[in-house]
Nucleic acid binder design. Sequence first.
DNA 1: GGCTCATGTAAAGGTCGTTCACATGAGCTG
DNA 2: CAGCTCATGTGAACGACCTTTACATGAGCC
Lengths: 246, 246
Amino acid sequence: MSWRKEQRRAERGYHHGNLKEALLQAALGLIAEKGAAGFTFADAARMAGVSAAAPYRHFRDRDELLSSIAQRGFEQFEARLSAAWDDGRPDTVTAFERVGKAYLAFAREEPAFYNAMFESGLPVDANPALMAAGERAFGVIRAAAERLAALTPPGIPRPPAMMMALHIWSMSHGIASLFSRGDAARRKLPMSPDELLEAEVLIYLRGLGFPIDRRPAGKRAEPPPVPPEAASGSGVPPGGPWGKPK
Amino acid sequence: MSWRKEQRRAERGYHHGNLKEALLQAALGLIAEKGAAGFTFADAARMAGVSAAAPYRHFRDRDELLSSIAQRGFEQFEARLSAAWDDGRPDTVTAFERVGKAYLAFAREEPAFYNAMFESGLPVDANPALMAAGERAFGVIRAAAERLAALTPPGIPRPPAMMMALHIWSMSHGIASLFSRGDAARRKLPMSPDELLEAEVLIYLRGLGFPIDRRPAGKRAEPPPVPPEAASGSGVPPGGPWGKPK
DNA sequence: GGCTCATGTAAAGGTCGTTCACATGAGCTG
DNA sequence: CAGCTCATGTGAACGACCTTTACATGAGCC
């Protein structure tokens, strides 16, 4: 044990050189294995080959390391959602579904990030930078919802984009955290989490009046966006399930 | 500190008399305050006025206490959902919405239970009794979905009840865990979590073909259940967003 | 070469979870 | 009531963890 530390030190010298990054990586691995609750500051230090006190030169405490990971997670999350959205190409509905899949894929492929972001019990609102990163990620969903809302077929009340975004987020998060990760994933389901989410979103969109079909994407009609004034009127019962705007 | 313990002991004698229950109550309070992660076996013992080793006479370890709480939580959860469902009275849709509200109410009013049940990272599938309790609670949603599915208007493919139940569960859980608890509840929303869920469920049901309206409950038409064979056919495109049964 | 400061170490204090040997006393048995 | 037994509680101890403090090292700069 001691000779090993000596050896490492011989390799890298007294100073680690990149301890902060090494700690983040170590923590990521540990969280993926044992969850944010089981992750230990001391373990991360051990894994990086330094003493238990060294990490305090780079993070105020264990929570700050966790926050850093959550922050990075939100940034990567935003990147992946953005890529999936691809500015609504080739058509809004297809791209929208791709965002949903990307959400689940991220939860599945980056359990450590997802855990730190949503399940670690971090006081998100106590950390402005963290909250901002979260908002930016949510912004992708929000922007997509905005575009989708603008496509509401004529004669149907247009739903508030913000509400749609929150709905989509809650569906994705609900499925991810109930069925798509850890032990919960072992529950016997009649369909995969991806299929479950896709069906849920499609039914939801249909409920909003979108003429959803199951034809392969790419051959979908995409009518031009309707200006808001045209959305109401024409003999359709006023107000959707979201009530009338106050 | 010592005299206080002496005093308590004088009151209750060497033996506590009801330590198991006292520990459960203490843990509930602590979890509500600081979350399942922050809850401490030692703290619970202190709160009950016994030594740190005493709890081990009643629980194998800290996890078993947590599991006991989760189990009780699932039982109370089931009771509340059942009461809300009220066997579908006065009409299926109204009762269904009431179940959704009850879900959120439970998450809000019993944060300790909800935390232990869904956010404590307990290995649910390692504990058969716990898993069974969870299944029973989910069974209420499932039964409600079953009844709802049977009401699918004629000429519209009937959705699998299991899928509906999973969808409803994921919506409820998603909203509860994102917006209805702890710090997350402080996020600025355009509407309350309850309204958000209600709108989501209504849009979803409409997407399934239910003729949802916003008239005050009680004056809703409730057609008799349609036998499954009649659900398909009649010129409607086959298969909903959930695909065709294999 | 010598200074300085970021970065690392060792040691120590406090809290937890958990175990073990031992103490207590509630309830049964005779 | 005396005595026995066993469930229940105590105290001490171990190892792990988080965190702080005083001290050590060495990389970069004059």
